[in-house]
């Protein structure tokens, strides 16, 4: 491990880092139960990470949850935006993940054709 590089990286971005850790207004939660993993949840999460990074989106936390019992629709992804209903997308792929970032996260319009349920 190149820990020297990590040290530099820490110093460089420290101010920005503080803001980010606590207050993510948008959460993207990928279901990582056995069925989710088998159906391709890992590359889906990878795609979300890459897309958020590429567009340099702040305030977005990408994380995972266990099985929610809707295995038939895996990979499943929840999008939770502060003050809005949370939305569950099903049958996700890396391609669909990119579209969700572009339309839902960036433009604020959920991608209705991928939605499997809405809560809250």
């Amino acid at each position: 491990m190149n820990l020297e590089e990590l040290r530099k990286l820490k110093e460089k971005a420290q101010a920005d880092l503080k803001v980010r850790a606590e207050s993510a207004k948008i959460k993207i939660i990928v279901g990582m139960g056995t069925c989710g993993i088998a159906a391709g949840a890992r590359p889906v999460m990878q795609a979300f990470l890459e897309e958020v990074e590429r567009r340099n989106l702040k305030d977005v936390l990408i994380t995972q949850s266990g099985c929610k019992g809707i295995c038939a629709m895996e990979p499943v992804v929840d999008v939770e935006i502060e003050g809005e209903k949370s939305i569950t997308y099903g049958y996700m792929t890396p391609e669909k993940a990119k579209k969700v970032i572009a339309e839902h996260i960036v433009n604020g319009t959920p991608v209705s054709e991928y939605i499997v349920s809405t809560q809250g």
């Binding site: 990590l6 990286l9 820490k10 460089k12 971005a13 420290q14 880092l17 980010r20 850790a21 990470l49």
Partner: peptide
């Protein structure tokens, strides 16, 4: 101060 899941650290 710096979380391990920060994008910069992630890369």
């Amino acid at each position: 101060e710096v979380s391990i899941n920060h994008p910069e650290v992630r890369s």
